[in-house]
Design a protein around this nucleic acid. Structure first.
Lengths: 228, 228
DNA sequence: ACCGGAATAAGTGTCGACAACTATGGCATC
DNA sequence: GATGCCATAGTTGTCGACACTTATTCCGGT
């Protein structure tokens, strides 16, 4: 539900390769197929009841989305997201979503902005109900970011974030259950961004969004440092 | 030569699909396969002397890099980069390369910075020799951007820019021969960015890089407006 | 002459089988 | 007992053939 991608793969797509691409991606993201595990073509083909041809096409797409690593004649493995790579993603998100917020402040419709504020209202109630675990774990966070990116109207920007980076972020959350204490802070930062967009202040919206993502990255850095 | 990608596909790669992926990509980028043309699987397979299996895998990769559009049961076509999509790419480059310049100012080695300055020195001589066509047409421009991005050390950032966006930029240049009169301006802007990086001023480097790419985008906007 | 529909052709999607390469295990040798 | 080599099994890479969908063409009807 929260994982609304640009394309709609959820239902029955016309080609098997596309459908199984989405299925394997979901299995990887949700941890059903553990990170770092080898992806045997015969095994996967049998699991999804298809031949190796379409499966290999799906693997090629997974390779392009950087969810699996493939080495010729050796096979494919699910990536193991190292700490550095995770932080790299946040750097890119800071740049890209900052720009998205700037443009969204110019281009988002009043109705979309109202919707966005409604979403934040709902999030505020959830946080107040003290079950703020849901805010992060149910990925309401990504929902917010998703709408801003959509609001930019830049198709390629939407594509990069929604089809690549967000899946990696979700994969990370499913692996290490997000027990962040940043829920309240993050919500407040979201509201600031939304306000800037509502006031059509692109410059401020970008600045706030970048600050927000940087803060998330720092929280992760702290957690990673504390774990060892 | 200027098209040094992250992976080295130029030589003989172990798998056919990877090799023909690079070949078709080059053919598309350089205009050998015209934009908007249909890509028939049997025809391409015959042209490269391979079977349709590996070819389809290559097409899947081309689809992921957004160089071809594919619709189920209908086949694949080379994308036709509309004016809007071209401008969208510059927006993303502004965000991403700005961030790259910021990080490069922190992480680039002194030797790499010296190399960068040497490259600009060479470009200055070319521009002075009045054959400044070469500066843009021979893609010295992309060379500069390429080094900055490399200097960021962010692998995913490098991947997005070098394997997706730069090929699209090159494709655009091959289609509409770049007759820009911005060569001198662009070179000066490049030098300012390099100076900021040499002084390890990340904030300034990002600001200058964004301003530079925005100026390039505006030049294209003007050209597009003047053409109709 | 124009329109609609069926037959045909072309192209995409899928499959099973063969070839090439890599990894694992056993055997002989030092 | 350890090491290097060979055989074997398993996996990946590639191919050709078949099924199904889409486009084209030709024919008959109005």
């Amino acid at each position: 539900m929260a994982s609304a991608t640009a394309e709609s793969l959820d239902e029955e797509t016309s080609t098997i390769a596309d459908r199984v691409f989405g299925q394997v991606r979901q299995a990887i993201v949700e941890g059903e197929i553990p990170a770092g595990s080898k992806l045997s073509e015969p095994a996967l083909a049998a699991r999804y009841g298809i031949s190796r041809g379409p499966l290999r096409e799906a693997m090629r797409r997974l390779e392009s989305t950087n969810l699996v690593e493939r080495r010729p004649n050796l096979g494919a493995r699910v990536i193991t997201l190292s700490n550095d790579e995770l932080l790299e993603i946040y750097v890119i998100r800071e740049a890209l979503e900052g720009m998205a917020a700037r443009i969204a402040a110019q281009r988002m419709s009043d109705a979309a902005i109202a919707d966005l504020k409604g979403l934040l209202e709902q999030h505020r109630r959830e946080v107040a109900r003290a079950d703020w675990q849901t805010y992060f774990q149910k990925e309401g966070d990504l929902d917010f970011h998703f709408r801003i990116v959509q609001g930019s109207g830049n198709r390629r920007l939407i594509d990069i974030l929604c089809n690549d980076l967000y899946h990696l972020a979700r994969m990370y959350r499913c692996q290490f259950g997000m027990k962040s204490d940043r829920a309240a802070d993050a919500l407040k930062e979201h509201e600031l961004v939304a306000d800037a967009i509502a006031e059509r202040d692109g410059e401020l919206a970008e600045w706030l969004m970048r600050r927000h993502i940087r803060a998330s990255r720092r929280a992760i850095e702290r957690r990673l440092a504390g774990e060892r």
